[in-house]
Each structure stands twice: as C-alpha cells, then as structure tokens.
C-alpha cells in the first residue's frame, strides 16, 4: 500500500484550511478532483459554468506541483501547507 502523508490544503481565495491524508503517489489532478468531490463546498464551476482550473502550490516552495508529478516527486512533506489556487482569466 502506498504511504500516506498528512498535509494542510489551504483553499483560496477563502483561505480555509483542510487537513487531509493523501497517498504520496497522488498527482495534483488526483488531489484536486478528490477535494472537489468531497462535498467541502469548493466551487467546481465559475459564474459562466466553465470548470475552474486549480493549481497546487506548496506554500514554502512557492512552485506549482507539475501536472505529471506526484506529491513524492514534488517532495511534499508531512505537515506541509499546500495552497490550492484558482487560476483566473478575465481581463
């Protein structure tokens, strides 16, 4: 079984913290999809009905976890705070 780590996901823009246990082989997409489906009230769609694109950024590193990386590849550590940032596109 894949090893799990406990981290804090900070959902932006509300800055709500959620403590989660995640497998180290999870990709950003796995994590984001699971959080969106967990009934936490995180918006999936914008006001136009388009899916919102989120990126995961470990707060200390300040670098987006690449889409094809796992949490282990990105060296996410126990108790890390990972920001879940909605990407915006209006002008």
């Amino acid at each position: 079984m894949t090893k799990e780590i406990n981290i804090i996901i900070r959902i932006m823009p509300t800055a709500d913290d959620i403590e989660v246990s995640l497998p180290l082989d999870a990709t950003p997409k796995d994590v984001i999809d699971a959080l969106l489906d967990a009934g936490l009230g995180i918006p999936k769609l914008d006001d136009q009905g388009n899916p919102i694109s989120y990126k995961l950024v470990p707060k200390e590193k300040g670098q987006e976890i690449p889409q094809d990386n796992t949490l282990m590849d990105a060296e996410v550590q126990e108790s890390d705070v990972v920001l879940m940032l909605p990407m915006v596109w209006a002008g």
């Binding site: 932006m12 823009p13 590193k61 300040g62 670098q63 690449p66 940032l85």
Partner: peptide
C-alpha cells in the same frame, strides 16, 4: 522566472516559480 499571484481578501501575495 516567477509569476505574481495576489488575493486581496486574504492578503495573499505570492511570487510563484515559473514552470
């Protein structure tokens, strides 16, 4: 090589490393 992301309500000011 770094990107600006700001969110005014939570006073978040990030300089994210470019991919």
């Amino acid at each position: 090589d770094s990107n600006l992301y700001i969110e005014g309500m939570s006073n978040t000011f990030l300089q994210l490393q470019a991919s």
